[in-house]
Design a protein around this nucleic acid. Sequence first.
DNA 1: ACCCATGCATGACT
DNA 2: CAGTCATGCATGGG
Length: 206
Amino acid sequence: MIRQGRQKLRGENFNCDYTVLYRPSVASTLFQACEEEFVYNTGDLARVQIFGKYRDIPRKQVAFGDPGLSYRFSVVEIPARPWSPLLRTIKDRIQEVTGQEFNFVLINRYKDGLDYIGEHRDDEEGLVQNASIASLSLGQKRDFIFKHCDARGKYKKRVVEPIKIELEHGSLLMMNYPTNRFWFHSLPVRRKATAAGINMTFRKMA
DNA sequence: ACCCATGCATGACT
DNA sequence: CAGTCATGCATGGG
């Protein structure tokens, strides 16, 4: 498990950079502002269709971005809301630090350790293929797990060790090309995590 | 991008 | 200490 403050993480088709972007006092201020500002999607926008059934996702979600952008998964189209001053501030900081531009952010809120996201790749259409995804975490720290696509499922092609990272309050994880093509990631249930956490993934859409 | 049943792993207890 | 049991968590199939 990666727990240190600053890491270049490299592996087979794996390239991520982890750093603490905001010190705890600043991160807490941002977290509080997010809690006051964000209104999360409900109803059809908070459901997915899997094996023919509609389910509520086990977390809250909302997206912001440049005008006209939207984000589709399952059968649901999530429209981007316009950038707020708070989000522009955060986006500007991340762009400054990384030297990359983003035009969309998907925000997930996990109310406690029972909220989660299952294994997936960020491989929707519309994402610029080789652009990095910037993942900012605020609030409750959570484990984040990468699994190689060849090492999943009942009939694994081969053994590849998973890569586990603890996403701290105020941390930034850069997921660089081609990580997302070869590795699935998830934020698994952690019963001992009792507080809420927010994760923002800044992306570049075509 | 989920849920559920199942089974393995871990740890408390005695 | 080792066996039993309860719980947590990963896994695979729908």
